[in-house]
C-alpha cells in the first residue's frame, strides 16, 4: 500500500466532506446525499463470520486476518447495493407506507480515523463511524463501523464510487442494517 497522504488541505477537504455527508444523513436530506453517489457506485456490507483459524497460518500474523471473516466467493454479503438500489432505498423512505421509517429513526453519525491514500485518479479512504440510532420511545442502539471508500474529486466536489461498510457483529444486535451507512 502506498503511504498515506499528508496533504493537510486534502485531508481537511475529505473530512469536511464526511462531516457534511453525516449531517445530511442525520437530517434525512437523502436527495442531497444521493447527489454524492457516482452512477457506478458499489456499496456493500460484508458479513462477519466466526471462522475456524487456519492451522497452516499458525504463529503468523495472517492467522488473524480479517478477510477470512468476510463473505467469500458467491456468499451473500449483508448488503450489495448499486446506484439504483440505493436510490430505491432512499426514496422509499419518503412514503408513509415505508413502515420501518415511519416514524423515522433519529441518528447521529460521528466520523473519525480518516486516512487517505492516493489510488488511480481518486482516493482510497478509510474511516470509522459511530452512529447512534434511536427509534420510537427508547429503542436506542450504537452502530460502530469502518468505511472503506473510494472517492473521486470532480468540479462539484467529491463523489463516492465505492463504499464497503465493515460492521463488527457476528449476530446483528441492532434492529436493521438496511440503513444508509
Amino acid at each position: 500500500m502506498s503511504t498515506p497522504s499528508s496533504d493537510l488541505a486534502l485531508l481537511s477537504a475529505i473530512e469536511q466532506f464526511y462531516y457534511r455527508e453525516a449531517r445530511w444523513l442525520d437530517d434525512r436530506q437523502y436527495q442531497q446525499w444521493m447527489a454524492l453517489l457516482a452512477q457506478d457506485i458499489r456499496y456493500t456490507v460484508p458479513v462477519r463470520h466466526t471462522p475456524m483459524l487456519d492451522p497452516k497460518l499458525r504463529e503468523t500474523e495472517s492467522v488473524l486476518n480479517v478477510g477470512q471473516e468476510l463473505n467469500q466467493g458467491i456468499e451473500a454479503p449483508l448488503r450489495d447495493d448499486s446506484y439504483l438500489t440505493l436510490m430505491i432505498r432512499a426514496t422509499r423512505s419518503f412514503k408513509l407506507s415505508a413502515w420501518a421509517d415511519n416514524p423515522p429513526a433519529r441518528t447521529r453519525r460521528f466520523v473519525s480515523n480518516v486516512e487517505v491514500y492516493e489510488e488511480g485518479d481518486g482516493y482510497r479512504v478509510y474511516s470509522n463511524t459511530l452512529m447512534s440510532f434511536s427509534r420510537h420511545g427508547h429503542d436506542n442502539h450504537l452502530y460502530p463501523y469502518q468505511r472503506q471508500d473510494r472517492l473521486q474529486k470532480t468540479d462539484n466536489g467529491f463523489m463516492i464510487h465505492e463504499r464497503h461498510v465493515l460492521l463488527d457483529w457476528n449476530v446483528v444486535t441492532a434492529p436493521s442494517v438496511a440503513l444508509l451507512f
Binding site: V45, I74, A76, P77, L78, R79, D80, D81, T85, I88, R89, R92, A98, W99, A100, V172, P175, S176, V177, A178
Partner: peptide, 28 residues
C-alpha cells in the same frame, strides 16, 4: 455464475437484516 450473482442480489436487496422488505417484517 452470473445468474447466481443476480439471484444473490435479489435475496440481499429484499431479505436478511439489510433487506428492504425484511426490515419492515422485523419491525412488525
Amino acid at each position: 455464475d452470473h445468474i447466481k450473482k443476480k439471484l444473490q442480489q435479489n435475496y440481499t436487496f429484499f431479505f436478511g437484516p439489510g433487506g428492504v422488505l425484511e426490515q419492515e417484517d422485523s419491525e412488525a
